[in-house]
Design a protein around this nucleic acid. Structure first.
Length: 700
DNA sequence: GCAAGGTC
């Protein structure tokens, strides 16, 4: 294409080039600036928009997320490798090549004639980075002259305000922070993943992709740690008192269940005493408290809110929900779904959307009721997001093209949206306190008086009419034995929530990263239990690169990035430090590659077999009767004799936090406590479990 | 090949 041809297509001599992060944003900005009177042009199969706003010409083009990625420069063998550069994504991902190349070519062409450059990507670190790379590579070094428009929703007012008050520069330090984040993840991920794969290869002569990274690491570790808790769970017993009394005085009315104030009684003896003491007694009504309660409507969906609800109601995993939400967004049913925000834009025309939604038969009643209100105002949540508002329906209601599952998600979003404007659910509560002998019991009743938004609010439950001083017959009282349950395995939803809580990954990547670790056979599909490979990997990395298994790495990195953003440290300084860390990790992995390889291969051999069940560690070498078991909490673990629970044996010993534990056949020759065999930094290590034993060489 | 982060 020649310059003159491009000029013909665009039709104006002078223009500012506006660079957006995604096609939808370019269109929305064009609409907002031009009162919908913009011109659409197709260049290399990509949409470009021309608008005239306040007598200036703007040509709007868009990326499709990142157009550039990091790449190793040459094929070389030796690790570590630090020779990276930014290249068009097409070079590393073939399937996206055409689309990305087309976008880059369009921007290159348009930048040749542009008199001004304006960055309009999302208002966050990645947005600034995406824009920086486009300005630097596609626009040929315009990152220092480009201007920046800042808006946090794609509403007309916000966009116009942003164009009236644009910054004279992009936030270059924020872009540097973003570039550094990419570099750190790339260098850590590539080098350590490769080092592990090679260690595997030295022992097996077969290639196997082993991966690890700043987010994968802790995520795998959470699954492994959780499983360790489950495997070493000791189901301690506890007791509760199951009590029913008559519901009316001196008559044979319905039975009601009442609760002893202690839900869990830790000693059977105590439960028995209570039962004995209560024999022959009556339940005396001691106190009645009445109160009313209010349940406010729910808050707007952000992505994780939607994922949680879709999982709860339909067992859709977060990845499925995100995929469906993306499709709904691309077909204009809903707003942008990859958002943290729980707030609707303040100037959203909610009434119009409600009116459109009233066309849906399922929601017409609720919508029509809302439309009768004088004004509608939604609830708002706490979370916010600079780049996007919460998820809401756009008002498009032609749902015949949607599959059943897509309809479910769409309906969930519509229902939530409408509920935001409805009245709270109100009810009454009555708490009744009893004395049986000297023991305290209670029960409570709820009754909804105005269900408001909450159609599922508890149906009218009978409020038992009792008065203080009433005495009621005990109909049944017995002791029930229960056992402490182990923690649950993660599923895809709870693992996403764990990642969210620990602040690793992002709304757009968490569900994907879980898929990656499933693909790598680190964790099993539905109930996310770790495979032997994951356990071996985590144990290995604990020795050689513990930081990559911990969310602390992300925290420290983000502190560094903030410093880059504030210009108190340079990107180069941070990357130099990263390289030093990687140097020593790679060195120690290489020095122990045979050991590491052997451990990983042994683990992969077990992948197709049934996982080894918690086999007994052997008889206690002190009392010769109990079994040795490992107990643990989230911080420590210990070797104990099963009889120590009943104080019949005093074998209790702290264990090293990590590593596979084996017990030697014979006890210590000095003190006869069990001897433990484990490995420390890849080397076998034997020691006596007795903390007091003089014949020991314990390590910290 | 390997990461994590955007987006179609």
């Amino acid at each position: 294409m020649k310059k003159s041809e491009l000029k013909d297509i665009i039709g104006v001599e002078e223009y500012s080039l506006v660079i957006c992060e995604k096609p939808e944003a370019a269109r929305k900005i064009s609409e907002a600036l031009s009162d919908n009177k913009y011109k659409t042009m197709k260049i290399f199969n990509a949409n470009v928009f021309l608008v005239t706003y306040k007598k200036r010409n703007y040509v709007l083009c868009s990326a499709i997320g990142h157009l550039y990625t990091l790449n190793l420069i040459k094929k070389r063998q030796k690790l570590p490798r630090y020779d990276y550069s930014w290249v068009p994504i097409s070079k590393s991902i073939k399937s996206r090549a055409k689309m990305v190349n087309a976008r880059i070519k369009v921007i290159e062409k348009l930048s040749e004639n542009a008199s001004e450059f304006i960055l309009a990507c999302d208002l966050d670190q990645e947005g600034e980075t995406i824009g920086y790379n486009i300005l630097k590579y596609a626009c040929k070094e315009k990152q220092n002259v480009a201007k920046r428009v800042k808006f946090s929703t794609l509403m007309e007012d916000d966009i116009k305000r942003a164009f009236a008050n644009m910054d004279n520069n992009i936030n270059i330090n924020l872009a540097y922070a973003g570039l550094t984040r990419h570099a750190i993840d790339f260098l850590y991920g590539m080098n350590i993943s490769r080092a592990l794969s090679r260690a595997f290869m030295t022992s097996s002569k077969k290639y196997r992709t082993l991966s690890i990274g700043r987010v994968q690491g802790p995520t795998i570790a959470y699954v492994v740690e959780n499983e360790l808790l489950r495997e070493t769970h000791v189901p301690l017993p506890f007791w509760s008192i199951n009590t029913y009394i008559n519901s009316i005085k001196n008559e044979s009315g319905k039975w009601i269940k009442i609760h002893y104030i202690e839900q869990k009684i830790l000693k059977n003896k105590n439960a028995k005493t209570i039962l004995d003491d209560c024999k022959g007694e009556q339940a005396l009504v001691e106190k009645i408290e009445e109160s009313s309660y209010k349940i406010n409507p729910p808050i707007p969906f952000n992505l994780s809110g939607l994922q949680k609800e879709a999982f709860r109601l339909y067992k859709l995993n977060p990845y499925q929900t995100l995929s469906i939400a993306e499709k709904l967004y691309l077909n204009a049913f809903i707003s942008y779904p990859r958002t943290n925000s729980q707030k609707l834009p303040h100037n959203l025309d909610c009434r119009r959307i409600i009116l459109e939604l009233s066309n849906l038969s399922e929601f017409s009643d609720v919508a029509n009721k809302l439309l009768k209100k004088q004004h509608v105002s939604p609830t708002q949540g706490k979370e916010s997001d600079n780049a996007h508002p919460s998820i809401y329906p756009t008002g498009k209601t032609i749902i015949s093209e949607l599959t059943d599952t897509e309809k479910k998600i769409f309906n969930l979003i519509v229902k939530r949206f409408l509920n935001l404007f409805r009245e709270p659910s109100i009810g009454k509560k009555r708490d009744i306190y009893f004395k049986i002998g000297k023991y305290d019991f209670y029960t409570s009743f709820k009754r909804t008086t105005d269900q408001g938004w909450n159609e599922n609010s508890s149906k009218k439950e009978a409020m038992i009419d009792l008065a203080v001083g009433d005495e009621l017959k005990i109909k049944r009282m017995k002791i029930v034995e229960n056992f402490e349950e182990p923690v649950s395995s993660y599923n895809q939803m709870t693992l996403v929530q764990k990642m969210e809580k620990e602040e690793i990954g992002t709304k757009s990547t968490r569900a994907n990263i879980i898929r990656t670790i499933i693909d790598r056979t680190y964790v099993n599909g539905n109930e996310l239990t770790p495979t032997e490979l994951a356990k071996a990997l985590v144990n290995t990395l604990k020795n050689y690169s513990p930081e990559i298994l911990s969310a602390e790495m992300t925290k420290r990195m983000e502190e560094n990035l903030r410093e880059i953003e504030n210009n108190t440290i340079t990107s180069e300084q941070v990357i130099e430090k990263t390289k030093k860390d990687i140097d020593s990790i790679i060195k120690s992995i290489q020095e122990n590659d045979k050991n590491i390889g052997r451990v990983l291969i042994t683990a992969t051999d077990k992948l197709n077999n049934k996982p080894v069940t918690n086999k007994p560690l052997g008889k206690c070498t002190i009392c010769q009767e109990g079994n040795l078991i490992i107990t643990s909490n989230s911080k420590n673990r210990a070797l104990v004799c099963s009889r120590s629970m009943k104080d019949e044996c005093n074998m209790k010993s702290p264990l090293p936090k990590f590593g596979y534990i084996r017990i030697q056949k014979n006890g210590c020759i000095k003190c006869s406590w069990p001897k433990i065999r484990t490995s420390y930094k890849g080397k076998p290590w034997n020691f006596c479990s007795n903390p007091e034993c003089k014949n020991k060489e314990r390590k910290k």
